[in-house]
């Protein structure tokens, strides 16, 4: 079995992107303003990280009009959920390994 850190996905591992996927793992979709508030980010920072996740195929960005107002919703794809679950599993394995080593 490989070391858990070798299973970490750099695309997901980054703190902001992990935060985005944490929210989207619990909800089915969240809008841009919610993510910005929940993660305490600026528009630019959130946009950049969403773009990275979208290019990796981990999120889908859906722009809709509600009345005359445009609103951007973000959804995690199946690959995104899978990558997030693998990341959390790897982090837990890593901690468990450290616990065993320290005992």
């Amino acid at each position: 079995m490989s070391h858990p850190t070798l299973q970490l996905d750099n695309m997901v591992h980054q703190r902001v992107r992990l935060g985005i996927l944490s929210v989207l793992d619990e909800a089915d979709e969240a809008d841009f303003a919610y993510l910005r508030g929940a993660l305490g980010l600026t528009d630019g920072n959130l946009s950049r990280n969403l773009q990275v996740l979208e290019e990796a195929g981990y999120v889908k960005i859906d722009k809709r009009f509600e009345g005359r107002r445009p609103r951007t919703w973000v959804l995690a794809t199946r690959e995104g959920r899978r990558a997030f679950a693998a990341e959390v599993r790897s982090l837990r394995e890593l901690l468990a390994r450290v616990d065993v080593a320290e005992r």
Partner: peptide, 12 residues
């Protein structure tokens, strides 16, 4: 990181 994940999920 895991703590942050749990906090974000709990809030959502």
């Amino acid at each position: 990181l895991l703590e942050q994940v749990e906090l974000r999920r709990e809030r959502a």
